[in-house]
Nucleic acid binder design. Structure first.
Lengths: 223, 223
DNA sequence: TAGATTGTTAATCGATTAACAATC
DNA sequence: TAGATTGTTAATCGATTAACAATC
């Protein structure tokens, strides 16, 4: 039996890929897009590694978790690898996203161009401030949080961004779960309790600065 | 020789603490502050672990990298541990921070309350748009990027937040290095090249959504 | 073909967990 | 004292790196 056919498989053979690998995948994608922008058609594990501060072995191993995308002697074709990584990440399609909370951060994120460029579009915004309900920000309609389930269902929204005050975050999260949301990107500085079936990514802006402060204070040359 | 005196040391005995440990340190701090807010005076490794989804052993091990903060049979005194963790992170003092770029994100971050609560204050903002120079946003003066080195020196600023478009980010980063900045929190979706002596933390908002999409697509129950 | 670079295996390194004596 | 919980050591687990045959 010759099973060597179709070796260039893209089957995500799963069996749990390490989380660290997935986060590097996004970095590879970003670097590849940059390389294409700069006019490159191919790259290789050494170049990608150098750009990101990884070893070449790690780049190859990371990508090999998901299939065979390279060409021995040549490297990787940028566009081809971009398409493959997007497919793995699930961003080969467009994702409608709900924005919850229209304070400073929520409004800024609504206007942020980077989401759309990677396949995400804010499809609806939600708040509880009567002044804001029914208005449009950046062409996006603002609904009352009470209408969450209805709008989410109508627009096929599966992801939500939480940009509400810390005190409101868990309550909002409960509503999101109730509305059938499958993934939450949380900017509130609290640990959200969610059922296992709902995915969660947390970004705490103050914590990022704390990490930076630690790094500066503990620089080899810095008391 | 009895060297058991002063065992409750806070000496960060260094020898390189794993990066993952430091990032969890910030989460412990956040949880501890929450616990105090909720009226607790003591906690323990099991409680902290449960709140954050870590094992109790990991909590103890992480903290033990930096000294002995707990009391066998009792656990940890919240306020005491908060003070210790802040000292380790370097946030027992206040850090003046420069904000570079006053687009949507920069302005939102300028207004974000969470920074101040953890010991960071935006001491100056910088842009290149003549319309903005000299104005004040949230009581913070806006300078031209050309005045970076001067203002940074005058105000003792060591950390900077980069919230400029991707295309401008590396140029801005070079200016920051030139101005003597020691740590950069970068929101631009590019890998900044910085000398080793300058610390770097990157937050790519689109990447966070990508990670969420991957998690949702690869949920045990989700094709 | 010779040179380059992959995918993958084995070796190394580091991080997490389990277990328990020490201690309050 | 008995019960609880730490700090730490040893065991396990997982991730990174090095090396190289396979391949274009």
């Amino acid at each position: 039996m010759d099973e060597s056919k179709d070796k260039r498989s893209q089957s995500s053979n799963d069996s749990t890929v390490p989380r660290a690998v997935v986060s590097r995948l996004s970095l590879y994608l970003r670097e590849l897009q940059q390389l294409v922008h700069d006019g490159n058609t191919t790259t290789n594990s050494t170049q990608l590694g150098t750009l990101l501060g990884f070893t070449d072995a790690q780049v190859r191993k990371d990508l090999a978790y998901f299939g065979q995308f390279g060409y021995p002697g040549i490297g990787y074709r940028c566009e081809e690898l971009i398409a493959a990584v997007k497919k793995i990440l699930g961003t080969d399609r467009s994702w409608p996203v709900a924005m919850i909370g229209l304070g400073n951060l929520g409004r800024a994120l609504l206007r942020y161009r980077g989401f759309h460029q990677q396949g995400f579009q804010i499809a609806a915004a939600f708040d509880v401030d009567a002044e804001k309900i029914g208005s449009h920000v950046e062409g996006i309609e603002v609904f009352h949080l009470d209408d969450l389930a209805e709008v989410v269902a109508a627009k096929g929204i599966r992801l939500a961004i939480v940009a509400v005050p810390a005190l409101a975050a868990q309550t909002v999260a409960d509503s999101l779960v109730e509305a059938g949301i499958e993934g939450v990107l949380n900017f509130a500085p609290v640990t959200l309790v969610l059922p296992d079936r709902v995915s969660r990514v947390g970004v705490d802006l103050a914590i990022e600065l704390e990490q930076l402060a630690f790094a500066v204070v503990n620089q080899p040359e810095n008391p």
